[in-house]
Every structure is written in C-alpha cells, then in structure tokens.
C-alpha cells in the first residue's frame, strides 16, 4: 500500500468512525422503540425479541398524524414565508449595498443571541390579544421571524457570489428588477436557495421551545407530541423512543432525498 492510498484509507476510516458516532444515538433510539419498557432499561443489548407494543401504545395515546400534519404546515409555511421576505432583502443587500448594510446584517444575526425565554411573556401576551395562541399561523409567524436572520445571511452569501456582470447584461437587454430576479438570479442561485430552504425546514421541524409554549391542543406539532412521552414517574424509554422515531422519520426521509442539493448548496456555493 503506497503512502497516498494509506492516507485515503485513514481518512475514509475516520469518516466512517465519525459517521458512526453521529448515527449511533439515532440507531439506538430506533432499536429501543422496538423493545419492551423493561428491556429498554436493562443492560444494553443488541439481542432482544422485537415488539411493536410501544408504537401501538403511542398511537393509542395521541393522534400522530394530527401532530405530523401541524409540523408539515408550520415548517414549510414558515420556510416559504421566510424565503419570500428574505430573497428581496438579500438581493438589495448583495447588489445595492449601502454603508449600513453590514451593520444591518450583523444586527439581524444578533437577534439570534437573545435567549427565547427572555421574550416569552411579551410574545405570549401579544398572541393572547391577537388570538394567535394555539394556531398554526401564530407558529408560522414566530418561526419565520426566528429563521429570517439565518435565511437572509445564507442567501446574501449565495447572491454575493453571483457575478454582477450577468445581472448587468440582463439589465442591458431591458430586464426590469423583477425580471432580473425571476429569470436570472433565482435560476442561477437555485441550489443555494434550496439548501437555505431545507435548513429552514429542518430548524422549524426541530424547534421545541416556542412550539411547546405557544400551542396547546389544536396547533401542537411533533415536538409537543414527543414531550408527552418522557416522564419523571414510571418507565418511558421505549415509548419515548418509538414516538421520537416517528417524529423524526418524515424529516429524515426528506433530508435523505434532498441531501445532494443540500450538500451542493452548502459546500460549493450557488453558482460554482
């Protein structure tokens, strides 16, 4: 084995080890979902007689599909709304910057540094008075605002990579700003927009603080569903694992199907 082959082997091995370490908790969670409650807390073992009891009990206690539908509507709704707001914002920041653009971008990012619990009571009061408590619209608004800084930043980075000459050429041919965005900017930066959207969907899907605090029975997404299966009294690991597996399954499949676009968008930039 020559030196470069050995190096490649080592890198490959390292990648597999890292992938295994990252994947192991998910693997163990899926496995635990098929155990009985007593087997779930017994000494860790890969050999056991699998059962669907936990899945059946979890479904009997709460309607999974209602929670899953809420998660889909809220995460995709907030992502679409965030992209609709962020695309024009990032366009103006990337192609028509002013001396305050950098400062605005940093200020937007700084809003992510505030612990959400600090604004829980004011937002709760606002939602109470506007009738948005326990509504999907309410969570779509909150998630849009929550993800907007990241979405704007990512799109801004992708748009900045686009050579200005292409847009200028379009303008020379008489394209309006809207046409410039729709026919040039969006098609050319589609991988970047797609990966930004995917990230926003995943962040919204996994968000637990606002979804637990602003919903009760009508708009509660899968994060609230999972929160009903851990317990300080009694055995719960098998049921919690079954509920968690069902909660992450849709987003896992979605991430798997779109991983090409995601990796391409995140690693190669928009137009390279």
């Amino acid at each position: 084995m020559n030196n470069s082959m050995f190096k490649r082997f080592c890198i490959g091995l390292l990648a597999w080890v890292i992938a295994f370490v990252i994947f192991f908790p998910i693997f163990w969670m899926v496995l635990t979902g098929f155990k009985t409650e007593t087997a779930a807390i017994a000494d860790p073992s890969l050999i056991f007689s699998p059962t669907l009891d936990s899945y059946i009990e979890v479904q009997q206690r709460a309607d999974y599909f209602k929670f899953a539908w809420n998660s889909v509507v809220i995460s995709f709704g907030s992502t679409i709304l965030a992209l609709l707001i962020a695309i024009p914002a990032a366009y103006s920041m990337a192609f028509l910057p002013t001396r305050r653009t950098k400062g605005t971008l940093l200020w937007m990012l700084s809003t992510k540094m505030l612990p959400p619990v600090g604004v829980l009571v004011p937002i709760y009061l606002l939602f109470r008075d506007t009738g948005l408590l326990d509504t999907k619209l309410g969570l779509v608004i909150v998630y849009t605002l929550m993800n907007l800084p990241i979405v704007v930043w990512m799109l801004y980075t992708f748009f900045k990579d686009l050579p200005r000459d292409i847009l200028e050429a379009g303008r020379m041919d008489g394209a309006s700003t809207l046409q410039e965005v729709v026919y040039l900017l969006l098609p050319l930066t589609l991988p970047g927009i797609a990966s930004t959207g995917l990230l926003s969907v995943i962040l919204s899907w996994n968000e637990a603080f606002w979804s637990l605090n602003l919903t009760s029975s009508q708009a509660a997404p899968l994060t609230a569903y999972i929160a009903s299966f851990s317990s300080p009294e009694g055995l719960f690991w098998a049921k919690l694992s079954a509920a968690s597996t069902m909660a992450i399954a849709p987003i896992l499949v979605f991430g798997w199907l779109t991983q090409k676009q995601m990796v391409r968008g995140l690693t190669f930039g928009a137009v390279k």
């Binding site: 829980l120 009571v121 709760y124 009061l125 605090n213 009760s216 509660a220 929160a227 009903s228 317990s231």
Partner: peptide, 26 residues
Amino acid sequence: LQWVVLEENVLRQRLTTDIATQGGQF
C-alpha cells in the same frame, strides 16, 4: 374533551406562563 398531555416539568412551565398571563388556553 381536548387533551394536552405533557411531561411534568414542561407542563409546569407551560401552565405557569398561561395562568400568569391569563392566557385562557386551558
């Protein structure tokens, strides 16, 4: 009846927020 079933600590936080702000969710 509509049910909101949560883990003890999560429920305590959720209920405290609602009752302290007179949210009327429950």
